[in-house]
Amino acid sequence: MNDQNPRYSNDLAGRASLCRDVIRSAGELVLAGFKESFRRGFSLKGPQDFLTETDAASEAHIRQAIATHFPGDAFLGEEGGGLIAERMWVVDPVDGTANFARGIPHFCISITYVERGRAEIGAIYNPAQDELYFCRRGAGATLNEKPIGISSTVAFDAASIEMGWSRRVPDEAYLETMRRMLAKGANVRRGASGALALAYVADGRSDAYVELHMNSWDCLAGLLLVAEAGGVVCPFMEIGSLQEGGPVLASTPAIAAGVSEASGIPVSAREMTAALQSA
Rank of each mutant, 00 (worst) to 15 (best):
M178G: 14
A274R: 15
V30Q: 00
G164P: 01
E36W: 05
I109M: 07
R168Y: 13
A16S: 14
I265C: 04
M237P: 03
R190I: 08
K184R: 15
E145C: 05
V267N: 03
R7I: 07
E131M: 12
R87D: 12
A139M: 00
V267E: 08
A56E: 15
L276M: 10
R189G: 11
K184D: 11
P93K: 01
M181W: 12
H69C: 09
S110K: 05
A141C: 05
A16W: 07
E115G: 05
D92C: 11
V267W: 07
L143M: 08
G103M: 12
M181F: 15
R205G: 11
L223G: 03
E78M: 07
L196S: 02
Y125I: 04
E211T: 11
L31E: 14
D95L: 00
A16I: 02
E238H: 07
A199C: 04
R137I: 09
G231L: 10
I84E: 13
T97V: 09
A269V: 10
H106R: 13
V201K: 02
A257L: 14
L175V: 13
G14F: 08
P247K: 09
S37F: 06
A256Y: 12
L242W: 05
R63N: 08
T97D: 09
G185S: 03
L182Y: 09
P147M: 11
K184M: 15
V226E: 06
I84W: 03
R116A: 13
G185I: 02
E211L: 07
V233K: 01
P6S: 13
T68Q: 14
P247E: 12
I239C: 04
Y113A: 06
S251A: 15
R205T: 15
G138Y: 13
G82I: 05
G258K: 12
G103E: 10
A123T: 05
T142E: 14
G138E: 08
N2S: 07
R136P: 02
G222A: 05
R137L: 14
V267C: 00
C108Y: 03
T112N: 10
E120M: 14
S216G: 03
M237G: 06
R189A: 08
E36L: 14
C219K: 00
H61D: 00
I148Y: 07
Q129H: 11
G41Y: 11
R63A: 13
M88S: 07
S152W: 15
T112C: 15
V90N: 01
M163K: 08
F236P: 06
I255P: 05
F107K: 06
G14L: 11
S260E: 09
A98V: 14
A60Y: 04
G117F: 12
G103N: 10
E78R: 01
G149I: 06
I66P: 07
V210D: 08
G82H: 08
E28S: 12
G164A: 13
S166R: 04
L29P: 00
Y209S: 04
M1N: 04
S43W: 10
Q64M: 13
L31N: 12
G164V: 02
Q4Y: 13
M237N: 10
A221H: 02
T54P: 08
A13W: 10
